[in-house]
Design a protein around this nucleic acid. Structure first.
Lengths: 146, 146
DNA sequence: ATTGGTGCAAAACTTTTGCAATTCC
DNA sequence: GGAATTGCAAAAGTTTTGCACCAAT
């Protein structure tokens, strides 16, 4: 639950300061189940510390991204979503019909990574992938409509 | 080269109007080699028709997306990129070191699609995927730096 | 004629930046 | 003390929207 303190303290050793804002932002991300937008992080921390500015959230997220502690997922619509990388890398299958989000393990991409490496000598860095499509529940509906 | 006229005329049959703006916008996309942003489309068409508004570009792109005539790719940074789908579906491998963009055929995703279908009964709609990573030229540099 | 589309202007939304004041080391 | 960090305010960049006028059917 609070193992992210190690993570924060590790910041110091690389020369970054350990500020309350940074701790609260990381805690908000760590305590959340799924993804959070910068604005959601802002709202969450503000309940405890109303002076937090959204720019501090973005600046902290930039830092955490650089350190590969959080992942940033751009869904192509709306704000980017942030998530703790230590929670275990996974990806999302998002149904465009009903909005359901299925979690898929990182291994789902093994074959794709292999193909990119073999055929293009390209080393993919896919920390977080979002794939849109139709889930099993909505497959019937889509066929009727089409 | 101008087979997109068929496409535009098909619009009428579904009840959409055939306006000069729509034709010019589609022509700009069709004539371009790679991707275009909405702003680039705007600039291109404006050389011939200076009154075109950027909002018309976005509205037309929405229409063309709905009809699956163009693909929209959100690179996660900067404006979305638009491309004719009839040009042949392909994806992009973008090197984060040197910025090179490799084109990859749609078949690259076959195994991934298969895995999502088999394991999650999820029917992915990946019209256009952009994958960031390290290309073969930069692989050595990255190892030295790391 | 009528509905749909366009241009214009303004706003919405997300993210970034400059800078003075503050805080952590 | 001094450099890093924050809060504030403003701006930047992309996309959307309201509305009056205009054009395609």
């Amino acid at each position: 639950m609070t193992h992210h303190h190690e993570v924060v303290e590790a910041l110091q050793q690389i020369g970054y300061r350990l500020t309350p804002q940074r701790m609260m932002i990381l805690e908000a991300i760590a305590d959340s189940e799924g993804h959070l937008s910068a604005e959601e992080i802002h709202e969450t921390v503000r309940t405890a510390y109303p002076y937090l500015d959204i720019s501090t959230v973005y600046r902290t997220l930039d830092l955490l991204k650089t350190l590969h502690l959080v992942s940033e997922t751009d869904l192509g619509r709306g704000p980017a979503q942030y998530e703790l990388l230590s929670k275990g890398l996974h990806h999302h299958l998002i149904c465009t019909e009903c909005g359901e989000i299925l979690d898929a393990p990182n291994s789902l991409l093994d074959s794709l990574r292999h193909a990119m490496s073999e055929e293009y000598d390209f080393h993919a860095e896919i920390e977080h992938l979002a794939v849109f499509g139709i889930c099993s529940n909505c497959k019937g509906d889509a066929q009727e409509a089409g």
